[in-house]
């Protein structure tokens, strides 16, 4: 852990740093991965009914968008700290980070879901009802599938944003790739200690790229009809 000489603090030494702390860094990567993914899934599950409500009742849409917009402006570090007292959790509960991130995901995704559902053409909706779909069937078999491209576009933003916000929780002691930045900072003397910082950046970017790619892949699998139509 102690930097031994000038060469090992070079930014290019990140690979050596990784090999020296491999099991710890892989642990951070895993923590970072589930902290990025699970809140987006939770956020989406909550955003679906809220987005539907904002479409179903027009008067709900403006306040819903204002509230979710406001939620997103709360600084993440404040939210991490405020969630345990607000929800009556132990101040050191490991749940506060995923809960806070779920809040951000909901905030982002409610608008996306509402707009995606709003993009379904009125003729299609009318035909679905007239043909004999019940409301739930219409939602899951007509509206939601047609909204998938818009929703996945939002999911890509949400998941990449989460990869970034999770690091903030690392600096207040929760295990994830953010811990690498904290360590780089602590080990810095008169010059920055680069290897863990560079490693953290590289792993975050790679993770974001992989998760983004996964969302794209899911979108592709769910929307063969989009590729068939020249736009």
């Amino acid at each position: 852990m102690i930097p031994l000489d000038a060469a090992s603090s070079s930014p290019w030494h990140f690979w050596g740093y990784f090999l020296d702390h491999r099991s710890q860094d892989l642990g951070y990567l895993w923590d970072h991965t589930w902290l990025s993914v699970v809140p987006v899934v939770v956020g989406l599950l909550l955003a679906l009914p809220l987005g539907w409500l904002s479409r179903r009742y027009n008067w709900v849409y403006p306040p819903m968008m204002s509230i979710t917009g406001l939620l997103y402006t709360i600084p993440s570090i404040a939210l991490f700290v405020l969630i345990p007292p607000l929800l009556g959790l132990d101040p050191l509960s490991p749940l506060q980070v995923p809960i806070a991130l779920s809040v951000y995901s909901v905030a982002l995704l409610v608008r996306v879901v509402a707009d995606g559902l709003g993009a379904v053409s009125p003729e299609t909706l009318q035909a679905a009802t007239a043909i004999g779909f019940k409301p739930l069937g219409r939602f899951f078999r007509v509206e939601l599938p047609i909204a998938v491209p818009v929703i996945t576009a939002g999911l890509r933003v949400a998941i990449v944003a989460n990869v970034s916000i999770v690091t903030v929780a690392g600096t207040i002691g929760f295990d994830n790739l953010g811990r690498l930045f904290d360590e780089g900072f602590k080990l810095s003397t008169d010059t920055p200690y680069y290897p863990p910082i560079i490693l953290g950046i590289i792993l975050c970017v790679l993770l974001a790229l992989v998760l983004d790619g996964l969302v794209l892949l899911v979108n592709r699998l769910l929307t063969p009809w989009r590729r068939a139509v020249p736009t």
Partner: peptide
């Protein structure tokens, strides 16, 4: 509604379903 055929302006087809599945919508439903 499932006993009554319905045709509208612009057809209102389901863009995410193939033509054959669009046509078979009501039989699938029942």
């Amino acid at each position: 509604r499932r006993q009554i055929g319905y045709v509208i302006q612009h057809a209102g087809l389901f863009p995410h379903r193939t033509i054959v599945d669009n046509i078979a919508t009501v039989p699938f439903l029942i």
